[in-house]
């Protein structure tokens, strides 16, 4: 199953765990699986059917422009990170 890295600010929802496994073929499915096991985490990640404002998802170290629709493999590493825009 994909390995999900839990941001420091959400670890109170996962009993302090910094990494958990979650089933799913897309980020949306992974979050739904997280929600089944750690209720409340979905609302911290999703707002209005999309990733929360200023949040992005990285799969295997690469920030995805597809957000919740991004596909994941069983071997994937998933991170929820701050969305970055830029300056020049």
């Amino acid at each position: 199953m994909p390995e999900v890295h839990i941001p420091a600010m959400l670890r109170e929802l996962t009993g302090g765990r910094s990494t958990v496994e979650a089933a799913g073929a897309t980020i949306r499915e992974v979050i739904e699986d997280l929600e089944r096991r750690w209720p409340g985490i979905r609302d911290r990640l999703i707002d209005g059917g999309r990733l929360r404002p200023n949040l992005a998802v990285a799969v295997d170290g690469e920030v995805s422009p597809l957000g919740l629709r991004e596909a994941v493999e069983p071997s994937s590493e998933v991170h929820f990170v701050a969305a970055i825009k830029g300056g020049v």
Partner: peptide
């Protein structure tokens, strides 16, 4: 290498 915000560098 893993950055403090989570992801490993490619």
């Amino acid at each position: 290498t893993r950055r403090a915000d989570g992801p490993k560098y490619r």
